[in-house]
Design a protein around this nucleic acid. Structure first.
Lengths: 332, 332
DNA sequence: GAGCTGCCGTCATACGTATGCCTGATCATA
DNA sequence: TATGATCAGGCATACGTATGACGGCAGCTC
């Protein structure tokens, strides 16, 4: 099934078929001919060959989506948003799951340079360095930034501020933190706002219990235990995301601490499972799907040569549920 | 950066470069020349153009992975497994998230027929009907089956049997069910084994509380409430997957029922969040990543023209945790 | 030294599409 | 009626790769 077959059937030349199929028939092909071509194409079930088109055009109408952990529902939503947006734009999404391995991430750029994709949507671990190559690489970063590439992200600063205002407003003075292990911009921002908010409230950030943890329940469980068993346990814990917050629940259960009576917990992202926690988690609600879609749209605009804002932010909002309350009067 | 550039630099012809790069140099190119070509290619950072190769070869070295819900971690693991296996085989994975919409699923086959992918890995909603087309379509089904296509799946029968043996062994006589809404083979099998096990124990399956639910917490919550508030509430509930089981926890919390004292709950898949539930969920542990990898391997073999078993099953095992116990003596 | 056999390597072409350029026909205008 | 102008559509080619068909050359045998 090639355009030649269609041409033969419609009694026209291959060029005419191509013209019609790519919508460039205006003024070059009569309505009657166009009709005949379309009919022939439909009858034969003709689909333009993507490889040939890609070869000719030098573009594959495909983008790579690089994600650190496909197993994490947050990324799932991002993927959904990006994929849907890409699909409606006639693009295909090539999925790369790096499983949190920076080496793998790097090698994926290398491997995909040959042309299977026109651009990259990167939800990365390390910010990709700019790489030399025939054509300048089209990259949009998600939740991170790197000079020279446009990026999209949640408004982590506003989210973290809302969390801290909430917690401080409840009367907490010992607000600990379970941080993600990456140097991603989003996490850095949350850390900074946590520190800044504490400082503004006259508290010393460096005196606060603080831990870093891989983003999975078991690791966060260990990290949170360390925090809660420490000499100065926090009355509230601000986590970089919901998974880490889940780890805090696990630790609290271990130590027979009640949430929020003994310790308040706040997450980030508002994943579905947070409703399952008992009590349900107070967290920052974010539209991850929109984030993915926005990333694709930005990449598409970027590839089309349009000028694109260096960074686009999506609003977030604090959703207060049962995991936060005023601290108990301390014995000290 | 084309093979011509490499050829010029190495002082050979384009064909020689092609020969070397595709590993077909044996007996046609001397070691010295081959070396020179490789060096030139490396210096220029040459990567064969995928589109051109795909056009020439009529194969894209890419497969589509069709998944109903990228947001569900179970599919995340499948994707991870499939993607990793594909990647090491030099294949690219095009992701399709159908968001549980059968129409979308269908249209994705249609759209991808033009050649962007060589085959399909389908974790489908509806079994795809066989479609006519120039070349016979290469499809492997996951967790489902359809005449004419190879399929891979978990051993749902064994899993369900283990669950029922466990529950009946604990003394349960009223074992309800929250079923998934799809006619997928995996779910059908679990249903059948549930019925068969009950019948073998001298119980009437039709008398058991039974509900169907979309696979999300809120829907399962509603469905489970219906079950537990019904005239003959079950002492145990077997759910088609962990998400549905999560809904049962929600309903139990609503109704002030304690798990497992008032009702035992069993899930399927062993997703990470089940550890977070209180008590942790008894469930069937499955290697979803292996399932994805196996699916790809099967597709690759199928495409290579090898004879492939019509169906391949992966073992599963029951993981007993805190959500199951003997029923309380009934008042009736 | 003529003929044969391997070994290395090049030539030419095909894959299917998109598009610049050209041609023939129709039509309007002078 | 002669001359442009406009419209419809075909011709030819290029995109970069893979590969079957060839050709030149060295070494060998008789």
């Amino acid at each position: 099934m090639t355009s030649n077959d269609v041409a033969r059937r419609a009694g026209v030349s291959q060029s005419t078929v191509s013209l019609v199929m790519s919508g460039k028939a205006r003024g070059r092909v009569s309505a009657a001919t166009e009709d005949a071509v379309r009919r022939a194409a439909a009858e034969l079930g003709y689909r333009p060959n993507v490889a040939a088109r890609a070869l000719r055009l030098g573009a594959a109408r495909s983008v790579a989506l690089v994600v650190p952990d496909v197993t994490n529902p947050f990324f799932g939503h991002v993927m959904r948003g990006a994929q849907a947006a890409a699909w409606t734009a006639g693009y295909t999404v090539a999925l790369i799951d790096t499983a949190n391995d920076p080496a793998w991430e790097l090698s994926s750029y290398e491997a995909l340079r040959g042309g299977p994709v026109d651009g990259f949507l990167v939800f990365g671990i390390d910010p990709p360095r700019r790489r030399r190559g025939a054509r300048p690489e089209r990259i949009v970063l998600i939740e991170d930034e790197s000079p020279g590439h446009p990026s999209v992200r949640l408004d982590s600063a506003a989210g973290a501020d809302a969390v801290m205002t909430h917690l401080l407003g409840l009367g907490h003075r010992r607000i600990g933190r379970v941080a993600a292990p990456f140097e991603r911009h989003a996490f850095r921002t949350r850390e900074e706002r946590w520190r800044a908010s504490l400082a503004e409230a006259g508290l010393d950030p460096d005196a606060m219990p603080h831990a870093r943890s891989e983003i999975d329940f078991a690791a966060a469980h260990r990290a949170a235990r360390g925090l809660l068993e420490g000499p100065y346990p926090p009355t509230a814990i601000f986590c970089d995301d919901d998974i880490l917050a889940g780890g805090v629940y696990l630790a609290a259960r271990d130590l027979r601490l009640r949430i929020p009576r003994d310790v308040s917990v706040v997450g980030f992202d508002d994943l579905a499972f947070t409703l399952l926690l008992d009590p349900p988690l107070t967290t920052v609600t974010a539209d991850a799907a929109r984030l993915g879609a926005l990333a694709f749209e930005t990449l598409a605009a970027h590839m089309a040569g349009e000028r694109v804002p260096r960074v686009r932010q999506l609003p977030v909002s604090l959703t207060v549920r049962g995991s936060t309350a005023a601290p108990r009067p301390q014995r000290e």
